[in-house]
C-alpha cells in the first residue's frame, strides 16, 4: 500500500554519490539521518492510531469488549517473540559491524523468522476474534483495535520483507556502499516496530478498559 512505498523509498541506501559520510556537513550519514527523521514522523502516525483506540476502546456492546476476547497468555507469547527478535536484530548489526557476513545473515534470517512468527500469531489472533464474533465493523472498539494492530502488522510485514531482501542482497553481494549501515538502518526500523508493540501490548492488552 501507499504506506509501504514510503518505507522502502526512504529506506534506500544507495544514493551514496551524495551520501558519503566524509562529505557531509555534520559528518553523519545521510541515510541514517533520513531513517531517524522517518521514525520521528512515524511517532505521529502511531500516536494518532493509539489515541483513536484509547478514545474508542470502551465503546462496544455489553459483552463485546476486550475482556471477552483477549487471550493474554497467547499475546504475551507473541510479544515475547517480537521482543526477542529485537535482540537477534542487534546481534545481526554487531555481526555486520564486524564484517561477519555469515553471522549477519544468520541473525537477519532468525529475526525475519521471529517476525513472521509474530505476524502469524496476529493472523491467528484476528481469525479467532473474528470467529468469536468480533468483526471489523462490530463496534467502534473493534474497528479501532483492528486498525491499530493491523497497521502495526503491516509494518512488521514490511520489515520482514526488508530483512529478507537484505539477506538476499548480502548473499549476492549486491549492496552498494556500506553494508553495515544498511543492516543498521533495517535494524532501526525493526526496533521501532518493536517499541510500538511495547506500547500496544500494555495500553491495549494489559490495561483493562
Amino acid at each position: 500500500m501507499a504506506d509501504t512505498a514510503v518505507h522502502d523509498a526512504v529506506d534506500e541506501h544507495d544514493d551514496h554519490g551524495h551520501g558519503d559520510v566524509h562529505h557531509t556537513s555534520t559528518g553523519l550519514s545521510n541515510n541514517k539521518l533520513a531513517m531517524w527523521l522517518f521514525l520521528g514522523s512515524e511517532c505521529l502516525l502511531f500516536g494518532g492510531l493509539i489515541s483513536t483506540y484509547m478514545l474508542y476502546r470502551g465503546r462496544h456492546s455489553a459483552n463485546g469488549g476486550p475482556d471477552q476476547f483477549w487471550d493474554i497468555p497467547f499475546t504475551s507469547a507473541s510479544s515475547f517473540v517480537l521482543l526477542m527478535s529485537s535482540l537477534t536484530m542487534v546481534l545481526a548489526v554487531t555481526a555486520a559491524k564486524r564484517k561477519d557476513d555469515r553471522n549477519t545473515n544468520l541473525w537477519l534470517t532468525v529475526t525475519a523468522i521471529l517476525g513472521s512468527l509474530f505476524v502469524a500469531g496476529q493472523v491467528y489472533e484476528f481469525t479467532t476474534f473474528y470467529r468469536e464474533g468480533l468483526g471489523y465493523t462490530t463496534s467502534l472498539f473493534s474497528s479501532s483495535f483492528y486498525t491499530l494492530t493491523g497497521f502495526h502488522g503491516v509494518h512488521v510485514s514490511v520489515g520482514v520483507i526488508m530483512l529478507l531482501a537484505t539477506v538476499g542482497m548480502i548473499l549476492k553481494n549486491r549492496i552498494p556502499g556500506d553494508k553495515a549501515e544498511v543492516v543498521e538502518l533495517v535494524g532501526l526500523y525493526w526496533h521501532f516496530v518493536d517499541i510500538v508493540w511495547i506500547l500496544i501490548f500494555t495500553l491495549v492488552y494489559l490495561i483493562p478498559a
Binding site: 504506506d3 514522523s41 505521529l44 502516525l45 494518532g48 471489523y136 465493523t137 474497528s143 486498525t147
Partner: peptide, 29 residues
C-alpha cells in the same frame, strides 16, 4: 514531517469509514 502522518491517519480512518463500513465518525454508533 510531523503533520503529514496525522492527516494520513485521518484519511485512513475516513477511507475505512467510507469503503469498509467502519463507524469512526458515525454518531449513531
Amino acid at each position: 514531517l510531523f503533520a503529514i502522518p496525522v492527516i494520513t491517519v485521518a484519511l485512513f480512518l475516513l477511507m475505512f469509514q467510507r469503503n469498509f463500513d467502519a463507524t469512526f465518525f458515525t454518531v449513531e454508533a
